[in-house]
Measured scan of single mutants.
Amino acid sequence: MKMAVISEHLGLSWAELARELQFSVEDINRIRVENPNSLLEQSVALLNLWVIREGQNANMENLYTALQSIDRGEIVNMLE
């Protein structure tokens, strides 16, 4: 549920979040190519990849820290 809210509000910031979460330029470009027409779909794809990559370590605290690092703390505030 929280992931959906984050995806809805990320907009163009999804790529900046991807870099903050240590995704490569290739990963970011692949997300763009696979989801060409929708920032929402790109955001969802990023968060899904992050959960798959991090497994047990994919917790909201880590995601909140990354969001705050890219000056998107207002998204965190909405969810708390």
Rank of each mutant, 00 (worst) to 15 (best):
R30H: 11
A58W: 12
L10V: 08
E8N: 12
S43M: 00
G55P: 03
I28A: 04
G73R: 07
Y64G: 07
P36F: 03
W14T: 02
Q68I: 11
N48Y: 02
G11T: 06
Y64C: 08
G11K: 06
E34R: 08
V51L: 14
S24W: 00
M3V: 13
F23L: 05
A15L: 14
V51F: 14
V44G: 14
N62V: 14
M3K: 10
E20Y: 07
V44K: 15
A58Q: 11
A66K: 07
A18S: 00
E8M: 05
M78C: 14
K2D: 04
L40H: 10
I31F: 02
E41W: 04
N48F: 01
A15V: 14
I75F: 02
E74T: 02
A58I: 13
Q68A: 13
S7E: 07
V25W: 07
I70S: 03
L67Y: 00
E54I: 00
E80L: 06
N37I: 08
L67G: 01
Q42R: 10
S69T: 13
P36C: 12
I28Q: 04
Q56K: 12
L63N: 02
E16G: 13
R53K: 09
L17N: 02
E8R: 12
H9T: 07
S7L: 02
V25P: 13
L49K: 14
I31D: 00
E74H: 11
L79Y: 06
L39N: 09
V5G: 03
W50P: 00
I75Y: 03
M60Y: 02
V25A: 14
P36T: 04
V44H: 15
A58K: 14
R72Q: 07
S69Q: 10
R32C: 10
R53G: 04
D71E: 14
E74C: 05
V33F: 14
Q42P: 00
L63E: 03
I75Q: 03
E8F: 05
L21H: 00
R19F: 14
M60F: 15
Y64L: 09
N29V: 08
I31V: 09
G73L: 05
M60Q: 03
M60C: 04
E20S: 10
E61R: 06
E26Q: 10
L49T: 08
N35D: 02
L17Q: 00
V76Y: 07
Q68N: 13
I28R: 04
M78G: 11
N77L: 12
E54M: 07
D71M: 10
V51Q: 15
M78I: 14
V33D: 13
G11D: 09
R72H: 10
W14G: 01
T65H: 12
V76E: 06
N48W: 01
R72N: 05
K2Y: 06
A45W: 00
N29D: 14
D27M: 08
E16S: 14
V76D: 00
A15E: 14
M60I: 12
N62I: 15
I70N: 02
L67P: 01
N77G: 13
Q56N: 09
Y64F: 06
A4C: 06
Y64S: 08
N29Y: 05
E41K: 15
V5M: 11
M78T: 14
A45H: 07
S7C: 11
A18L: 04
E16I: 06
V25L: 11
M60W: 14
N29K: 14
G73S: 09
N29P: 00
L39W: 07
P36D: 09
E20Q: 14
I70F: 03
L12A: 15
R19Y: 05
P36H: 07
L47H: 04
R32D: 05
M60D: 08
N77H: 09
I70D: 01
E26R: 11
A58V: 15
D27I: 12
A18Y: 01
V33Y: 06
N35S: 13
G73A: 09
A4M: 05
Q22Y: 09
E34H: 05
S7P: 04
E61C: 15
T65R: 12
N59F: 06
F23T: 00
L21V: 05
G11M: 05
L21W: 03
R53L: 00
S7Q: 06
T65Y: 10
S7D: 01
D71V: 01
E74G: 06
Y64T: 12
E20M: 11
N77E: 11
V33K: 08
Q42G: 00
W50M: 02
E34S: 10
V76R: 08
I70L: 02
L47N: 00
A4R: 11
L10I: 09
S7K: 02
N57G: 13
R30K: 14
A18V: 00
A58H: 08
N62Q: 10
R32Y: 05
